[in-house]
């Protein structure tokens, strides 16, 4: 794909003030019209990465990178104000917690147009007109009633639709969805994700879908990045990851999810041990303690490989 690169991150590292590494040298690329899935368990650094793109990283964390270009703008040289403006105008954000992202004391209609009015010269009437259109587009029938209501009067699914509509207000050129459906029921989860997918198809808006659910990512994404302990373990297309997973962690992750055609009495595959803290790996592999293919070399070195069609993985073994 020789298309436009929307996101070009090279060697991103996020540290705390005390120098603990939370995200350890990851590289991300996203092309126009693509849906990229970032999967990982809690503590793998996937949300922090998303927050860095949104310029929302908590102040007590610092990040550095060799290259960090979002929508053609270089974050490394861009001033604070410009970064803020860029994120506000061109990046849409769909949060995980549907409730706390919306202000409980402000009506939906005022919240939804707030960001829009800030970055356009249009007046309130026009903004509300656009809000109405978008709210209708995200599948809410009773638009007038919705716009008048407060967030706490709505269900989680409704709020998430409002969040998506709000993210779309400024015609974003990138959408970052951080676990958009974790708090939702499975039937509503599908509606919300279908909606994001429709937006992606219609406007060719690239989407970064951060999730812990490998099954979900499989259905909605074209490319997957598997993260563990602040590092990227494997990055490839969906077909490659599921038909030919290279990294032991990815393989284990696919196996531990109980499938519907599991035989009765069959034992579920498990990954021994527990998630280790980021940066404890020393020189070696971050996954070594839980890996069943562990070798001596894994203790101190790690090889990064890229095989056919940009299939990246980080392991000493060749599968």
């Amino acid at each position: 794909m020789a298309e436009e690169k929307v996101l070009d991150i090279e060697n991103l590292t996020i540290r705390t003030q005390r120098g603990r590494t939370l995200v350890d040298g990851i590289s991300l690329h996203l092309y126009k019209g693509e849906v990229l899935g970032v999967v990982g368990e809690s503590g793998s650094g996937k949300t922090l990465t998303a927050k860095t793109i949104l310029n929302l990283l908590p102040e007590n964390l610092s990040w550095e990178a060799d290259r960090f270009a979002v929508l053609g703008a270089d974050y490394l040289t861009l001033g604070k104000k410009d970064t803020k403006a860029l994120v506000g105008q061109k990046i849409g954000y769909v949060p995980q917690n549907t409730g706390s992202y919306l202000h409980p004391m402000i009506r939906i209609k005022d919240q939804i147009i707030d960001g829009y009015l800030r970055y356009t010269k249009n007046n309130r009437g026009e903004a509300l007109e656009r809000a109405r259109e978008l709210v209708k587009a995200v599948g809410i029938r009773d638009t007038e009633r919705l716009l008048k209501s407060y967030p706490w009067q709505l269900s989680g699914g409704m709020r998430q639709r409002v969040n998506i509509a709000m993210a779309l207000m400024n015609q974003p050129r990138l959408i970052v969805a951080d676990e958009p459906t974790t708090a939702l029921d499975s039937t509503i989860q599908m509606q919300v994700l279908d909606l994001l997918k429709t937006v992606n198809d219609l406007y060719e808006t690239p989407v970064i879908l951060v999730s812990h659910d490998l099954g979900l990512v499989k259905y909605y994404c074209e490319r997957i990045v598997v993260m563990y302990a602040g590092q990227i373990m494997e990055a490839a297309t969906v077909e490659q990851v599921f038909s030919n997973p290279k990294h032991p962690y990815t393989r284990a992750l696919i196996k531990v999810i109980p499938s519907l055609n599991i035989k009765k009495g069959e034992r579920l595959a498990e990954i021994p041990g527990q998630l280790n803290a980021v940066g404890t790996a020393g020189g070696g592999c971050a996954f070594k303690e839980r890996c069943s293919f562990r070798q001596e070399a894994c203790e101190y070195t790690i090889r990064e490989k890229t095989v056919a069609d940009n299939h990246y993985y980080r392991c000493n073994l060749d599968f």
């Binding site: 284990a252 109980p258 998630l275």
Partner: peptide, 14 residues
């Protein structure tokens, strides 16, 4: 629980 730990607990329960 995280998926990798979830499998351990399910197996333990069984």
């Amino acid at each position: 629980l995280d998926v990798s730990v979830q499998a351990q607990i399910l197996n333990l329960l069984k």
